[in-house]
Amino acid sequence: MMATTVPAEAGETNITNEDAEHVFQLDAVSFSYHGRHEALIDVDLTIERGEQLVILGANGSGKSTLLKMLDGLYRPTSGTIRAFGQDITDVADDPVRARELHRRVGLVFQDADVQLFSPTVYDDVAFGPLQMGWDKERVTREVARALEQMNVTHLSDRAPYELSGGEKKRVAIATVLSMEPDVILLDEPTASLDPRSSAVLVDVIAGLRDLGKTVVVTTHQLEIVPLIATRVVVFGDQERRPVASGNATEILSNAELLIRTNLVHEHLHFHADANLMHSHLHGPEHHEG
């Protein structure tokens, strides 16, 4: 049998301050690309353990940038981000602690093709555990578990480019689940999926709560919000910071907020003889005659 090549067993580096109340705490965080385009401006946000947070925002409101910052891939231009009670900039500067941060915080990218870079599904799901320096038995066990949790075991020998959009998304989630993360960040998970694949994925995301994971989902698709969110934070596309927070019912019933943040639009419709200005929300209560 060919020897498995893994790095020397990495010690379980503790980046946790167990006294920390929040998984993430952002204080006045700003970020700009190349010092010019401001993606986030003065963001204050806390994310609690075990919650399923949905970050709602229109295109360009900084949602994807925020997730990459929470995973330590981008550093704030100003302000501080604390992950598990530790300053994320300090953690990212230390390769060993950074690796542990990446293990504990799994990021599922919007474009699954970016995330699935290995020749087969199995190799992709095993990539993270192998980088952690786990032994072969543990890698094999965790990969099998993650594939089973996402119901993609039958795809393990397939090449990623052969998969459908929904299958790619489930495999992408498996690639982070195999690292036993505490937090899973999902960037627009249902974007460009057909309704059925979207529904399957919503069930998968809702199921992550049963696994005890803290889940942060960015989206602009309002219909999935009540199905997965225990809390919703709305990002303004002009402000590039949270402009509202609440439960799904509170947020989705606030038509003025949704229109102002470009999550719905209003326009003129002719309904029989009436000229109605209404937004694209479900239910008659949102019609303004």
Binding site: P95, D111, L130, K136
Partner: peptide, 27 residues
């Protein structure tokens, strides 16, 4: 852009410059 994104996706799963693979072949 794709190469940058893929690199980020690798870093997000613990990649630090060394590559490790697994093999389950049986002669």
């Amino acid at each position: 852009k794709t190469s940058n994104d893929v690199y980020q996706a690798m870093v997000a799963r613990g990649f630090t410059g060394d590559v490790y693979t697994i093999s389950d072949f049986k002669m």
